[in-house]
Amino acid sequence: MPRSLSAVLPPRGLADRLTALFWRRPNLLLVLLLAPPLLWLGVVYLGSLAALLLQSFYSIDEFSGLVVREFTLKTYAELLRPSNYDVILRTLLMSAAVTVASVIIAFPIAYMAARYAKGRWKAVFYLGIMLPLWSSYLVKVYAWKLILAKEGILTWAAERTHTQWLIDAALSLPYVGGNSLSTSFIGTFLVFTYVWLPFMILPMQASLERVPASLLEASADLGATPARTFRTVTLPLALPGIIAGSIFTFSLTMGDYIIPQIIGTSANFIGMAVYQLQGTAGNIPLAAAFAVVPIVIMLIYLQLAKRAGAFDAL
């Protein structure tokens, strides 16, 4: 290479000129990179959310069935009618139950994966968690219908192991029980928990992985029993991950309209109500008001979690 006297090399083409431009004006690059997602998020996503919010303040004319574009809280008042209020309460309870069950089932799995799984086992863990997500959601739900049906796999297995009484006992419970698992709230709950479990395990595992082993050792070193260490160190530090996971399981359950249609008592859930109201019933304002409910509940939930110090470790 010939020795140049200059310390500055000449640009070799457009790429060099562009790189130089971005180097001199780093903000330009930032703007170029951020503009498309911000447009998408800001206009398309938040815009439609605003439109939704706006629609919920309209009402429907009971005779003509037309939307009256005037500000009113009438539609929200309608949410409090017993039949609508029941839907909200049912969905809320189901979401809470699914979330609690997911936390309980996910924690040991996430803990093992974060603390003990290394190399190949870690790959097995991720594959095991992700694999169910690759298949169609509808396929999984219908598979569960076969598993839970009265003549289904679970009943068959229970007969073979003489544990039929267990299923019968569960089905004889008031309200959540029913004719068969696939037509009871227990069935809906089981399928919800199965379908959303990965969304709880992954953030939980990520937060547990960030807890250094030395913290657990320090706790033991200072005299804490393993149970105490779990309560005062592991759990508080894993809490942001648990909250993140519960946001997924909670909001996914609240918005879902397929699972309760296929498995369960065919009692209405918020998602189903929204689906019916905006479709066959053509009551867009009430559908919008229903859709606002999960958003409000999530905001309240996050506020409570924040007040309880769930994000202190972040």
């Binding site: 250094p212 050792e217 320090a218 070193d221 029993t225 530090l237 470790a313």
Partner: peptide, 20 residues
């Protein structure tokens, strides 16, 4: 004897202070 029953305490290399 498990660590929590030993009358010995440690200053850890990364200090291991509880962040929360």
């Amino acid at each position: 004897t498990p660590p929590h029953l030993r009358h010995v305490n440690t200053v850890f290399q990364d200090y291991a202070l509880f962040p929360h």
